[in-house]
């Protein structure tokens, strides 16, 4: 079966005036439909960068990227925006809800960029908010919610567009362990129902929820393990540099 996401030799270099930061160096990665992948590694190794490349928030400096079998590198801003809107659901560490909008409006936001009828939007919003257990807080503003509640709303927002893949960057980073556990339960639940998830996390306990853990060091994939056991990747076994 064709992978949902396929990266081949992807490179990301940040060039500032003084230094060039090689954040991602030649990463090959495949994510299958319905898979739950976790990316882990030390701080600054390029996890967030990799995730934003997958999420088409940023474009790679080199390499190739296929999403649902279609090449998506070299697309323009608006094309990428359309793909983000339809196929990608983001969950951020700091929730990133919009303070001026109610819970309902926040969740509705990605749908408004599709020209979907208002009644259909409302129905879907209600639906996803029920799924994350936040339907009773529709009219609240983010500031009136706890961190855990805010993150559940953020998950609902990511789900609302029925994306092909959920991308979560340390979704529990700003939560206490109880709330963090609850969000992880939610993601596992979604995964059981068929969602494809790619999550960055530091926490080995949470990484264990995933089918597969990808280890990243200095912008390179240095190892992978599946829930069943360790799998050595042949080509990255010995760093050449």
């Amino acid at each position: 079966m064709e992978p949902l996401i396929k990266l081949e030799g992807v490179i990301k270099v940040f060039a500032t005036e003084e230094v060039e930061t090689h954040a991602i160096e030649s990463v090959n990665l495949e994510i299958q439909n319905g898979e739950y992948v976790s990316i882990s590694g030390p701080s600054g190794c390029g996890k967030s960068t990799l995730l934003s490349l997958i999420g088409l928030l940023d474009s790679p400096t080199g390499g190739r990227y296929w999403l649902k079998g279609q090449p998506v590198d070299g697309l323009g801003f608006n094309e990428r925006a359309r793909i983000r809107n339809r196929d990608i659901g983001f969950i951020f560490q700091s929730f990133n809800l919009i303070g001026d909008l109610t819970v309902e409006e926040n969740v509705e936001l990605p749908l408004t960029y599709r020209g979907m009828a208002s009644s259909e939007r409302k129905r879907r919003v209600k639906d996803v908010l029920e799924r994350v257990g936040m339907a009773h807080r529709m009219k609240h503003y983010p500031a009136q919610l706890s961190g855990g509640e805010q993150q559940r709303v953020a998950v609902a927002r990511a789900l609302a567009g029925e994306p092909a893949v959920l991308l979560a960057d340390e979704p529990t980073g700003n939560l206490d362990s109880k709330n963090g556990e609850a969000v992880m339960q939610l993601l596992s639940e979604l995964h059981r129902r068929g969602a494809t998830i790619c999550m960055v996390t530091h926490d080995p306990r949470f990484a264990a929820h995933a089918d597969r853990v990808v280890h990243l060091t200095d912008g390179r994939v240095t190892g992978e393990e599946s829930a069943e056991g360790k799998i050595q990747k042949s080509e990255v076994g010995s760093p050449q540099s």
Binding site: L57, F77, A81, R82, R84, N85, L109, P110, R114, G161
Partner: peptide
């Protein structure tokens, strides 16, 4: 945030 969620220019 809006751009991440797919807002066009």
């Amino acid at each position: 945030i809006r751009m991440a969620l797919g807002a066009q220019k």
